[in-house]
Design a protein around this nucleic acid. Sequence first.
DNA 1: TTCTTGACTTGGACTCCGTCCATCGTAGGA
DNA 2: TCCTACGATGGACGGAGTCCAAGTCAAGAA
Lengths: 136, 136
Amino acid sequence: MSDLLERLRERGWRMTSQRRVVAEVLDGDHVHLTADEVHALAARRLPEISRATVYNALGELVALGEVAEVSTDGRARRYDPNAHHPHHHLVCSGCGTIRDVHPAAEPLDDLPAEERFGFTVSTAEVTYRGLCPSCA
Amino acid sequence: MSDLLERLRERGWRMTSQRRVVAEVLDGDHVHLTADEVHALAARRLPEISRATVYNALGELVALGEVAEVSTDGRARRYDPNAHHPHHHLVCSGCGTIRDVHPAAEPLDDLPAEERFGFTVSTAEVTYRGLCPSCA
DNA sequence: TTCTTGACTTGGACTCCGTCCATCGTAGGA
DNA sequence: TCCTACGATGGACGGAGTCCAAGTCAAGAA
């Protein structure tokens, strides 16, 4: 899945060292990082990178559809590089851990027309909440 | 539905003028208010009420299960007095309007055991996103 | 009714998350 | 190689929420 950089370049995303590092951090196996965590990891390779730049890059990756924004708790938003594989989230109410899950059904199908109030409904995100084994 | 106050009293919730006003604001037909909006409405009847008190009261109502916390956008949390009627939310990506919806299926049933990672899963919230008629 | 006390309220300081902006730097085309 | 428009910087700023010490009061006891 390390062709993220390639895809971005093909799409005309001007490649700077800062943007490259941010994309590489997200493209690793880390999951659901906050902007601050991305900044910390990016700064290990590029110590002068600024917070504003990280926020800019993240916002653009979200706009490009390469990264999904997740806000499960009203605190810091988290960034999910798994945007090309539709999935939902299971959140531990104790420690905040997030896991990706793949339910059997597509919830969009369960919203009858008379419940749509004329909206053009395009996505449905499900957040499952509970306690993880260590918090239970 | 105006027996919220009664229920709270029965459950031993110490009733102060501030708490009463907060509960009354939520018990009205207003929906999905932010803490600041609750504070503004409460202040119309009790001008001296402080923000900290509103936050405290909201937090307790949530803990008591009388009000649900909703965070659909990573901005301000919203408070939903309709906690006794299970439902989900339809959010307009344009203007942020929120509507309550009642899908046909229960998403919790769609999460197979092997996707639960040992979690004790207790709730599932669905957020449908799209454009409302005026924003489309 | 009055007293008492522990729980509640207050407001200001503080933290955290995110945005804005003027200035500087540089990627990539000519 | 040179130009220039686009990106990066960092510090100021704003909104949302929390914390705390001091003052106030609801409600049970007498």
